[in-house]
Design a protein around this nucleic acid. Structure first.
Length: 137
DNA sequence: GCCAACGTTGGC
DNA sequence: GCCAACGTTGGC
């Protein structure tokens, strides 16, 4: 059973289009322990939303973990984690933070909402399905 | 070991 | 541009 995640990036630094253009990417640079623990828990085949923070504030696509348990190549000490991801699906309709908050009874408990600074968070299967339906999938 | 000061993230 | 939330650092 794959698990579901949500990973944030500021699109002016690294966007969905950048990932699609490259065909794959290594999700590194995370320097927060809760986020790192989530990265370290990922397994090949897990699915993750790509969320644009700051600019857009919306989920734009779905990626899949293609290689798990990597060490962060930007960390010389080797204590931070990373995963390799490939882009899977660009959402037909983006799902904004605003619309997620507006669906509060179903999505109000999302870590994205509760812990807005966490850059890598887990998404429940129910939340995942709900967001897919909001995205027109 | 506590806590104030400070830095960063990210929504508004 | 502001500020709340949160993490880290350093003095005591």
């Amino acid at each position: 059973m794959p698990r579901y995640w949500l990973m944030k990036s500021e699109p002016d630094a690294y966007s969905w289009d950048d990932l699609e253009a490259a065909g794959e990417g290594v999700w590194d640079g995370v320097r927060n322990h809760a986020a790192k623990n989530n990265l370290a828990a990922m397994e090949v085949g897990d699915q993750a939303f790509f969320y644009h923070s700051n600019i857009g504030r919306e989920i734009v696509g779905i990626m899949e973990v293609s290689e798990a348990g990597l060490l962060d190549p930007t960390d010389k000490e080797g204590k931070w984690a990373a995963v390799r991801v490939i882009p899977r699906t660009k959402l037909p309709a983006t799902v904004t933070l605003k619309s997620i908050k507006a669906a509060d009874d179903e999505l109000g408990e999302m870590q994205l909402v509760k812990q807005s600074r966490l850059s890598v968070s887990e998404v429940t299967k129910h939340e995942w399905s709900k967001i897919l339906s909001m995205a027109g999938i």
